[in-house]
Design a protein around this nucleic acid. Structure first.
Length: 435
RNA sequence: GCCCCGGUAGUGUAGCGGCCUAUCAUGAAGCCCUGUCGAGGCUUCGACUUGGGUUCAAAUCCCAGCCGGGGCGCCA
């Protein structure tokens, strides 16, 4: 049995001219001129042209032009130099096989001259993903995640995987999905927060996870998902939250830089990336509020920044030359119970903002079990529900902190994508459960 | 949780009480064409979210359902 493919479209070079090659992929388009026909074949790397001549082999020609668009075929033929064809060569078929015939009409055109709605595209995601610009997003996503692994492993982090089926709602706050766990009730983890903290009591010191977040909030917006991914880290023996911010800004810088090296994909998307400068500006919550008030945006001290305020602050910071910045020392009241207080009212926390959108949020955590219990109670939680978590703080827990960093939000900002659903292969939102 | 908005061929749209036997593009099917690359030309096919109501007359107005989009809150 012969190979179904010896060459990808873009891997053919001059030394192949005049030789027999085998190419395979999807029939993107057929232009039948009468006595000659051009089949545009698409594979993972690009497209190539198969040129059929009626005179040469009428039967093969009929079969070739009769195949439906987006069918999968494999073609054996001569690779012939041609200045008229797009890659400088064309394949003159001797033989071809339809590996899979596509039904017609297509539910979504790959190269049609009409746009499709996102909903239609997501309903037919496997076809949508045949488009090079859609694929480019996920190729870049792959690169930045690979940069995460390299960067964090170099900083002595180890990758961990914490459970996603959990017994109690992890942090209060957001809604969680309830599931049946045999005779018990369980929940899908909204974040790995409590588990990565427990791991700080083990001596592993630095852990990270590419984590799934499940959130049962019924929002329907272009920047929310009910199932999303994040880079979550936790590190022990820190002096302060500044140690964590250093890791985070280095990580973001590295991811951005790695993305900027995806030249082919960025060209397809028609995007240019400017690598951010380190260090990112640190601005305290107090100063952020002052800045906002000075710009006719009235905000009460203590309130979390709303979408509107975040945007305005983003504009102010951009004017001052900072696209990326940390907002530090939030009011304690706006942060979860495990956040380390700073004085009475503030916290040792930070949010990383990019152009007015929150990319990541983190803090130094409380490592004293009594303070932790006190904070739980102040937040309206019952420490008894957190026994398994609290136990880890009773037998030697070093000072520690970490952050969670949404991957889809990052990709969205990185590539300037309007709807977050485009940043994940198969989005789960308020209404979408398939595909 | 609160508040807006929308559903017309496979896809994307026009129409917003009678001119609708519903527009245009794209697509599909077929015919012509030996250098296409957004190929071209000709022919054909294909749709008003569902159920009630108003009206002489409903794609169009009203009500309800179903499906979807978005904003806010909250968050990543």
């Amino acid at each position: 049995m012969k190979d179904l493919r010896t060459h990808y479209s873009l891997d053919v070079s001059e030394k192949d001219f005049g030789k027999k090659i085998v190419v395979a992929g999807w029939v993107e388009d057929i232009r039948n001129i009468g006595g000659i026909a051009f089949i545009i074949l698409r594979d993972r790397k690009g497209t190539l042209q198969v040129t059929g001549l009626k005179k040469k082999d009428p039967k093969l020609f009929e079969k070739l032009v009769g195949v439906s668009r987006e069918s999968v075929i494999s073609v054996i033929g001569e690779c012939k130099k041609s200045d008229k064809a797009r890659n400088g060569y064309e394949v003159i078929p001797d033989e071809f096989n339809v590996l899979s015939e596509a039904e017609t009409p297509l539910p979504l055109g790959v190269v049609d001259k009409v746009e499709s709605e996102l909903d239609t595209r997501l309903d037919n995601r496997f076809i949508d993903l045949r488009k090079p610009d859609v694929q480019a997003i996920f190729k870049i996503r792959n690169e930045v995640i690979s940069a995460v692994h390299t960067f964090l492993i170099n900083k002595n982090f180890i990758e961990v995987h914490t459970p996603k089926i959990i017994a109690s709602s992890s942090e209060g706050g957001t809604d969680v999905f309830k599931i049946k766990y045999f005779e018990k009730e369980a929940f899908l983890a909204q974040s790995p927060q409590l588990y990565k903290q427990i791991l700080m009591a083990t001596g592993l010191d630095r852990v990270y996870e590419i984590a799934w977040y499940f959130r049962a909030e019924e929002h329907n917006t272009r920047r929310h998902l009910n199932e999303s991914t994040a880079v979550d880290i936790e590190m022990a023996f820190i002096k302060s939250e500044e140690d964590i911010m250093k890791i985070l800004e280095g990580l973001v810088y590295t991811m951005w830089k790695k993305a900027s090296e995806c030249v082919d994909e960025l060209n397809i998307l028609n995007k240019k990336l400017t690598i951010p400068k380190l260090p990112f500006k640190r601005i305290s919550y107090d100063d952020a509020v002052k800045k906002l008030n000075a710009n006719d945006c009235k905000i009460e001290w203590g309130a979390d920044l709303g979408t509107e305020e975040e945007k305005i602050l983003g504009d102010i910071m951009k004017k001052e030359g900072d696209e990326f910045y940390f907002i530090t020392n939030y009011p304690l009241i706006a942060k979860p119970f495990y956040t380390m207080p700073e004085g009475d009212k503030l916290s040792r926390s930070f949010d990383l903002e990019c152009k007015g959108v929150e990319l990541a949020s983190g803090s130094q955590r409380i490592h004293n079990v009594n303070l932790l219990k006190k904070r739980m109670e102040e937040c309206g939680l019952n420490p008894k529900d957190f026994d398994a978590y609290l136990k880890a703080f009773r037998y030697g827990m070093p000072p520690h902190g970490g952050f969670g960093f949404g991957i889809e939000r990052f990709v969205m900002e990185l590539l300037d994508i309007y709807n977050i659903r485009e940043c994940i292969l198969f989005p789960r939102d308020r209404t979408r459960l398939t595909p």
